[in-house]
Design a protein around this nucleic acid. Structure first.
Length: 147
DNA sequence: GCCAACGTTGGC
DNA sequence: GCCAACGTTGGC
């Protein structure tokens, strides 16, 4: 799960302990949160627009299928006039801080690692802010962060 | 700040 | 339903 590092990063989550991952306005990203995430799942916190960008920490999904409250906030950045309380359009999840990676795993290292071949985040044109990571890739990134 | 890639919008 | 125009993402 990506977020711009200057906007909200792993240290903010460490301080807050948990947060609602709202404001996602892409259908594919929404579908991953709505349909594929389960309570107890682990997720990476990825810093985008960082120097370098990459995986900073681990979080746990503690609540799923939350109706994104920001779609109803008229003056907010994420307001969606087509969403109604009866038929909401955007859903999100609640995440809990698990840990900072001992060592940050940058996108260049991810791209160089042959064991991470096919990982979505390293593919050209993949801009999704929420995307799946296979168990093997997840373990490999954890391994990279602890050496 | 540039730009490639891709999503969304709206005219027809 | 096509597709051009426009907007956004995000690495570099």
């Amino acid at each position: 799960m990506k977020n711009e590092v200057t906007d909200y990063n792993i240290d903010d989550l460490d301080r807050d302990k948990q947060t609602t991952w709202d404001g996602v306005r892409n259908y594919q990203a929404r579908n991953f949160m709505r349909d594929d995430m389960c309570v107890g799942d682990l997720a990476f916190f990825y810093h985008s627009n960082a120097d370098p960008s990459g995986v900073a920490g681990v979080m746990k999904i503690i609540k799923t299928k939350i109706t994104d409250p920001t779609q109803f906030e008229k003056k907010g950045k994420y307001y969606d006039e087509k969403a109604t309380k009866a038929v909401p359009r955007w859903f999100c999840v609640e995440v809990q801080f698990v840990k900072n990676l001992k060592n940050f795993v940058g996108l260049p290292e991810i791209k160089q690692n042959k064991k991470l071949k096919g990982i979505l985040v390293a593919q050209k044109g993949t801009r999704l802010s929420v995307q799946p990571v296979s168990k093997e890739h997840f373990k490999e990134i954890i391994r990279m962060s602890s050496v």
